[in-house]
Design a protein around this nucleic acid. Sequence first.
DNA 1: GTTACAAAATAACCAATAGTTATTATATAA
DNA 2: TTATATAATAACTATTGGTTATTTTGTAAC
Lengths: 241, 241
Amino acid sequence: MRSSDRRQREKEQRKTGIIDAAERLFFFRRYEDVSMDDIAHSVELNKATIYLYFENKETLFATIVLRGIQILGEKYQECMEKQVPGIVKVALMGQAYYQFSEEFPGYLRLIHFYGSERFSRENPYTAEIGKGYGDCRRILQDAIQEGIGDKTIQADLDPFLTSMYLMISFMGTLSLENRWRLVVEAEGFSYGQFTSEFFRFMMPAISSGDKSRTLDAGDFAASGFFLTEPLAPDKRKRKKQ
Amino acid sequence: MRSSDRRQREKEQRKTGIIDAAERLFFFRRYEDVSMDDIAHSVELNKATIYLYFENKETLFATIVLRGIQILGEKYQECMEKQVPGIVKVALMGQAYYQFSEEFPGYLRLIHFYGSERFSRENPYTAEIGKGYGDCRRILQDAIQEGIGDKTIQADLDPFLTSMYLMISFMGTLSLENRWRLVVEAEGFSYGQFTSEFFRFMMPAISSGDKSRTLDAGDFAASGFFLTEPLAPDKRKRKKQ
DNA sequence: GTTACAAAATAACCAATAGTTATTATATAA
DNA sequence: TTATATAATAACTATTGGTTATTTTGTAAC
């Protein structure tokens, strides 16, 4: 029964092919502007064939979103494994989100859109995606806990709540909604500056006051954190008159 | 030509009637689950009649979103007019967002959904909604500027960036996405606690270190800020084991 | 090679719904 | 009472997510 093995493999490949094609389309067009027929045409299959592999359009879309979430989760895991103080891990995770948004803007867009009420919560993939996001948050929470342990993070912060606030703020700041992006750029800031300064802004909220444990930019940079150059007064708001 | 005046008024009333009916439906069902026929049936008009008053479904929806934004803008304006230090105004604005989410959960949901990529940016209402949101942010920026002036807010913060970060964080924290709400409640926190603690968390990021200007909970409470009770250790994470 | 059968793929179809058009009803002014 | 402009509608179109009845293809047994 070797051939049935191969058949199984081929089936998997076909499924992957469909996801790949759909992904290419969703990355460049809005969800509602990509029809199942478009996708079918793109993989050179009949629309009905796609329905042999995916329950519906939402499920297919969710599968793509899950790909993105998994990549993000791996990035978080990598940050956690570094041998650095807790607060630096937190900073690295924020930076990981930023890097993810630069490397995979398509996935980020899709992830955020999937968070909108457009998608039903019954979809079995929704739970899995939620779990994926939850894992990321959990890793962040562990980093915070570690920071409290090594005294680089305020002891009176609740690790769960703090991880939620940071996660939500990361998401909001990096949601590629052009709405905000345009506002930021209209004020003369680059999006990179915007996110960099965000970390600087948040730091006092989490950093412990413990002077002996206070880290300077150099400590962060040595750990691979590159978003630390402070905004020179002449670099900000150049466009404002 | 008195009668043409009345006709005009009647036309306006009919338009309002359509918006009201649509609003009632959108408040309780997802955008995609409300059809133009549903709305038409609800106002007891033919679907085609609605198209005499609104270009399309998006425009009708955007009109409702605009109503919500305008209410939010008024709340912000009221905060700005209070005779309190800058940092208190900022706190009050955060609280205003929270109150808005409690008083008008429907509008909040619609506003956030309108922010998703589902809606085209060409819609003329989109610009107006963006302007409405921008006005709120601008008011917040003014409050920050004032706080820097009266030394209750750190002098080295950029008012524009800070207003963006706060605005985005408010939005994220209060986006009624059940996704987060459920996580928060699963951890044993109420949504009220969750938002309250958020203000406490953010305060160190903006408050100046100036001891003579540091305000305590009482100062805030006297200004109408009610989300200040610190979380008692026994009140948090009751559900955890 | 031929046949039997299961799996994969498809063409043709259905239902819902945003949006349009051709037609009818209604209110007002002369 | 009639002409006319405006408001409203019934009937229609086009798109698209999803389904069904049918055909094609690959594999195993003879």
